[in-house]
C-alpha cells in the first residue's frame, strides 16, 4: 500500500507544485526518492503530530494542499483536537493519510492500532473518510482526495494487501461497491479486511451459503441510498470491520436503516468493545481477535444456522 500511495502522490506532486508531502518522521524509502526529486514539496516535521496538523492547516490557508502521512493512531488519537479545530472546523484543504491503520502494526500492539478511528472521525463535520481495501483502490482514493475540496482522511493498511481488482477498477467516492454476488446474505465491509471477507465468502460457498459482499470504501459521506437498496427485503446482514463494533461501519449502517424505518437483522463482526490482543503477523493478530477468514466464516455460519445471537 505504501508503494501505491507514494506512486499516486508522486503523480500529483509532479502536476501541482502546491501539493506538499508532510511527514512526521514517518516516511519510507519511497518518500526519500520523492524528496530528492521535489525537495520543495516534502517537509519532515519530526515527531510532532500536533504541530504538523496545525501547520498543515496554516499551509492550506496560504494556498497549499498538504498530504499529511502519519501512523493513523497518532493523527486520530493524539491530534484529534488539532484535527477538529484547525482542519475540520475551518474546513481546510488538508489530506490526512492514516498509515498502518486497523491492526496493521500487528507486532507492536494496541498503542499502534487504530480500531476506534472511524467512530471518532464519523462525528467530525466537513471530513470525508475513505477506507481503501487494495493498492488500486488506494490509488483511486488518493486522486479523489486531491480532487475533493476540504479535509479528507484515508484509512490505509500496510500489510502487503493483495490486489483484488483488475485494471478496469474505478474509485467512485461516496458510492458503495458490491464486489461479490450472493443470494443468501449480505456482508458489508471496508478496508484491508476485505480480503479476509472474500476468503470467508468462498468458505461459505463450500457449505452451500451464497454471500454477497459490499465494499463500503467511503465511510463518510455514507452512501445511504445504496445501503438502503442493499438492505431492502428479508435476509441476514453482516458487517465486518477491523475496528470496534461500536461506532464503525456496522453502527453507521444500522443508523441509516433505523432512521429509514427499515428493520434490519445485522450482526456486527469486529472487536467486541475491546482492544486487540496479541502480537505477531497481521494474520496472527486477526486470528487471535477472531477476525481472520476462518473466524468470520464460523461466525456467519453460526448465525445462519442458529439465528441471531444477542451479542455486541
Amino acid at each position: 500500500m505504501q508503494r501505491a500511495y507514494a506512486t499516486a502522490l508522486y503523480e500529483i506532486l509532479k502536476k501541482d507544485r502546491n501539493v506538499i508531502s508532510c511527514l512526521s518522521d514517518s516516511g519510507t524509502d519511497y518518500d526519500e526518492l520523492i524528496a530528492r526529486e521535489f525537495p520543495d514539496q516534502v517537509v519532515n516535521f519530526g515527531i510532532s503530530e500536533n504541530n504538523q496538523l496545525s501547520a498543515a492547516a496554516g499551509m492550506a490557508a496560504a494556498g497549499k494542499i498538504p498530504f499529511v502521512y502519519t501512523t493513523g493512531a497518532f493523527i486520530v488519537y493524539r491530534s484529534y483536537e488539532f484535527l477538529r479545530d484547525d482542519v475540520c472546523l475551518q474546513n481546510r484543504n488538508v489530506k490526512l493519510i492514516g498509515m498502518g491503520t486497523g491492526l496493521a502494526w500487528s507486532t507492536l500492539g494496541a498503542t499502534h492500532h487504530t480500531t476506534e478511528d472511524l467512530a471518532l472521525l464519523r462525528a467530525l463535520p466537513n471530513l470525508t473518510v475513505f477506507t481503501p481495501a487494495t493498492p488500486r483502490e488506494l490509488t483511486g482514493a488518493v486522486q479523489a482526495a486531491y480532487e475533493t475540496r476540504g479535509p479528507v482522511y484515508i484509512r490505509m493498511g500496510m500489510s502487503g494487501e493483495e490486489e483484488l481488482f483488475d485494471e478496469t477498477y474505478t474509485f467512485t467516492p461516496g458510492k458503495i461497491l458490491p464486489v461479490r454476488e450472493g443470494k443468501d446474505l449480505t456482508v458489508f465491509t471496508a478496508g484491508s479486511i476485505l480480503s479476509e471477507v472474500m476468503k470467508a465468502a468462498r468458505l461459505l460457498e463450500l457449505e452451500g451459503i451464497s454471500a454477497r459482499v459490499v465494499n463500503v470504501h467511503t465511510v463518510k459521506p455514507l452512501d445511504s441510498e445504496g445501503i438502503l437498496r442493499e438492505c431492502k427485503g428479508p435476509g441476514l446482514f453482516f458487517s465486518v470491520e477491523e475496528h470496534n463494533v461500536l461506532g464503525g461501519i456496522g453502527t453507521a449502517i444500522a443508523d441509516v436503516c433505523g432512521s429509514a424505518g427499515l428493520p434490519l437483522r445485522l450482526t456486527k463482526i469486529g472487536l467486541r468493545d475491546s482492544f486487540a490482543e496479541g502480537f505477531g503477523t497481521k494474520k496472527d493478530v486477526l486470528r487471535q481477535n477472531c477476525l481472520d477468514a476462518e473466524h468470520i466464516f464460523l461466525r456467519i455460519s453460526e448465525v445462519v444456522k442458529n439465528g441471531l445471537s444477542v451479542q455486541i
Partner: peptide, 9 residues
C-alpha cells in the same frame, strides 16, 4: 503552529 505553516507556505 498555524502561523508557522502559513509562514512556511
Amino acid at each position: 503552529g498555524f502561523a508557522a505553516g502559513a509562514a512556511f507556505a
